[in-house]
């Protein structure tokens, strides 16, 4: 049986959506619920770009183990995004470097962009959802 939230049928142009993730996971729910938006959005076949910047880079840190905090580890879901045709994942270089991380620390392959490239990328979007 279809869940009510699966009933949405849409027509319209493909728009360029950017999801900007700026918060660390677990401390607040924003990271998890923004990931839920991205998963639903994938079904709408829009042009989706994901950005991880500021503490958002911690969302895709490898080796998350939440066993002892009683919260579900949702980081494996980022690896599933490719299966939803969400393939444009960008990480801001400065955010990563200032936190002492490199792309080797991340659970998914990403494209690194510097702050100016990111600013340009944002300008190219039609809808920006920032969490």
């Amino acid at each position: 049986m279809a869940e009510p939230w699966e009933d949405d049928e849409l027509e319209g142009p493909v728009r360029k959506f950017m999801y900007v993730n700026r918060r660390a996971p677990y401390g607040t729910i924003y990271a998890l619920e923004s990931l839920e938006v991205v998963l639903i959005a994938a079904a709408f076949e829009q042009d989706v770009t994901l950005v991880f910047m500021d503490d958002g880079v911690y969302q895709i840190k490898k080796d998350q183990n939440t066993d002892a905090i009683g919260v579900k580890n949702f980081s494996p879901t980022y690896r599933a995004l490719e299966g939803y045709d969400v393939e444009k994942l960008y990480v801001e270089k400065e955010s990563l470097a200032s936190r002492g991380l490199t792309t080797d620390d991340l659970i998914v392959p990403v494209q690194l962009v510097d702050k100016d490239q990111l600013a340009q990328l944002m300008e190219e979007q039609e809808v920006i959802l920032s969490f």
Partner: peptide, 19 residues
């Protein structure tokens, strides 16, 4: 009460989205 699809639809149909 409805699904997140309603948010995406708002993004598609609206000229501007303010958060």
């Amino acid at each position: 009460i409805s699904g997140l699809g309603q948010l995406i639809e708002a993004g598609i149909q609206s000229d501007r989205m303010v958060i």
